[in-house]
Design a protein around this nucleic acid. Sequence first.
DNA 1: GTGAAAGCGCTAACAG
DNA 2: CTGTTAGCGCTTTCAC
Lengths: 347, 347
Amino acid sequence: MSRHRIEDGNRLTMEDVARHAGVSAMTVSRALRSPATVNKETRERVAMSIADTGYIHNLVASALASKRSGLVAIILPTIASSMFADSIKGVSEVVRRRGGQIVIAETLYSSAEEERVVAALLGRRPDGLIIIGVSHTRRMRQLVERSGVPVVETWDSTTRPLDNLVSLSNYDAARAMTKALLDNGFRRIAFVGSMGRDHRAEMRAKGYVAALNARGIATPQIIRVDDIASMDTGTQVVEEILANPRRPEAVFFLNDVLAAGALLAFQSRGISVPGDIGVAGFGGFDLGRHLNPSLSTVHIPRYEIGCIAADILMDRIEGKVEAPINRRVEFEVLLRGSTARSRADVR
Amino acid sequence: MSRHRIEDGNRLTMEDVARHAGVSAMTVSRALRSPATVNKETRERVAMSIADTGYIHNLVASALASKRSGLVAIILPTIASSMFADSIKGVSEVVRRRGGQIVIAETLYSSAEEERVVAALLGRRPDGLIIIGVSHTRRMRQLVERSGVPVVETWDSTTRPLDNLVSLSNYDAARAMTKALLDNGFRRIAFVGSMGRDHRAEMRAKGYVAALNARGIATPQIIRVDDIASMDTGTQVVEEILANPRRPEAVFFLNDVLAAGALLAFQSRGISVPGDIGVAGFGGFDLGRHLNPSLSTVHIPRYEIGCIAADILMDRIEGKVEAPINRRVEFEVLLRGSTARSRADVR
DNA sequence: GTGAAAGCGCTAACAG
DNA sequence: CTGTTAGCGCTTTCAC
């Protein structure tokens, strides 16, 4: 249990390594950051010396002196949502491969918290910022813009990005799914959305309404729920729907978690999906494919979004690109068993 | 699109704020870190000045000077596993509440990668380290011990922790579930485990074998799979099981994702669960409760593990506690519909 | 309660 | 290819 707080490893400096290797600290620094500029033999002596002493490059001091922290900050609504986990993974892998490290902070879908969190994060002088969402307070925009740090916003679309954008149209995606359901013969389609101030959720609700309106249906039926991350909410929505005398023919959920919870709840109550009611989700999670019937959904390239965002950011950080980039990613409507209107429709 | 890299916000220093407020930089520093030691009026002038200028406290310089980074590093197998996401969330919330920030790195279940990642992370001079898992290479142990940084390991148990431990016995948990299945009347029970070098998975396999042995069953049937994070793997295992003439009466899966995938795959092939075969998982995820039948599982307090680990670590960092703490968290075997042997057993 | 001096451990810039 | 010098922007320490 060697807790030698005031001891070896941590206390070593470049100077110690340099002395041990018979060179100057600057050479150690070079051997660490741009090995190519150091004579091979010298470099090897330094490497030995580092191994011998157990030195660990102090990235804090390095960041202060070089004004490059090697940190990419990620701001997202919540870590524990499968929606974003895959995107973070994409970011994490790319950033790591390109020599950086990620720091993460959650906003819990709150603008106030986003402001606080951004300020704290900027204090770390990250080289770049990846933000899930495009809806920010004025102060938060100011904070970020004044910091001069390159940014990539993603998972939503906007005409006024902070900087770079990996754009996903939640509006178009929801409209496309709703249209597909209408084409499939469903008329009374309900939408389950969010109670909160979640911009992406709002855009999906609007896309749903637009698709209905385009078919002359002026009576959207939107059910708003609070906790959008739990299958239990799906169950509760089912109760609500079954209590309603005018039952919809299909229900389109904000995300696959809610949809899956609802599909299973319908079934456990003896309601047949899609026979008695159609169910569709959003997100394109694995789970949906495995349900019986499998779940219709809008597939979002979650992992790719993370990779693309990170690559754009790193290119910018490394100065490979100057102008802000605006890259759109595509969704895909997947109609599966849960919205099939005849046996032949089932996939 | 104000990309004024060489400009305002970022370039401001404490000195600027101090001048603006008519005090010294040291007073600004105090107002920021220990407001109580600064005269109220002065403190307010400083606050105004910070607001006016848009200054953001440079935590990099602060960390270098104070030797406290405010960073808690988390090392885990993979970010995109629901197993750990809730634990990270717990850590994230506690650390944030207590004034810190988290940095995350994944090992992808590889020891070599863990070594690399730890070295990179230690370079940031984190105030503490939270590691998921207890199985490390010698060099990795050395690295961490020599760094003198407080550590909490978790999600596994060991008699030789690096420092603090939030201990979970995967062995006991798997043994308890297996015993429960045996008590329930199942005899031929198969276990689906990991192919890899995942210590937690190995302990679960051993717990399963131990429970069988305790009943005089000397023929465990272990199916090893590669990708333990995908429901598809559950489907593949089902194929394998159905192809086997000597079909087990129940299958105990390494985790709920595999179990859920298998349960749904059995059903889509017309095999009744639990009528034809029992299915049990591990983890205690929401999903399991919603399946029909609901999934038997071993519940793990995932979120709590994160909170406890973070609190122990922060107490240690703040010097509130001196000696390493070893805290055990409890699992709970939940027998549900997927392993019910009679209608009365169904819950 | 506030300020001045010194230095945390590194790297930029320049010199050789 | 390698070394020297001068900071990076804070906080520690000590003085007042």
